[in-house]
Design a protein around this nucleic acid. Structure first.
Lengths: 72, 72
DNA sequence: CTGTATAGTGCATTATATGGCTCTTTTACT
DNA sequence: AGTAAAAGAGCCATATAATGCACTATACAG
């Protein structure tokens, strides 16, 4: 999953759940500024930050093995 | 995926591939110190750092929706 | 057009991740 | 046991993530 995809995923998920950045910030304990920065593609969040955000959105960060047979 | 699981996953993957931290550090461009810190559970890597590490191990960072029906 | 809610940005400060160097500890092999 | 490779840890300088505040931009309802 590319960086931009991660962002899109988060944004999309947030929109599906109909919650504002402000709400996510409050619920997750992540600063609103940080969340805004991340969603607007400006940031490089730490794993902890990403985790907190994903968490309140009912998502989780995971590591998966890339498909080798990726026929580019 | 919990933080400790992420670490375990990385370590396990690295061991399966039989590569040392040093090699991963060199190939990924991540500092050896940083990698050591992460694998020993001391760090809180940025998404970019995690991505670089996962990349050389043939893995990728992704966001997945938590299973709601998690019957705890 | 006007107000309101939500999202994005500039600036400054603080906290912390990164990474090199060196040393210690652990692991693995003969 | 002895040795070497690999992993972990302390010290420390630098880069940058996190955060608040204030302001701007955008979208939308009335």
């Amino acid at each position: 999953m590319h960086y931009t995809e991660l962002i899109k995923t988060i944004k999309a998920r947030r929109e599906v759940l109909q919650v504002t950045q402000e709400t996510v910030a409050e619920l997750s304990g992540v600063g609103l500024r940080t969340l805004k920065q991340f969603e607007s593609g400006k940031g490089n969040p730490t794993l902890l930050t990403l985790h907190k955000i994903a968490d309140v959105l009912g998502m989780e960060v995971s590591l998966t093995i890339k498909n080798i047979t990726t026929n580019k």
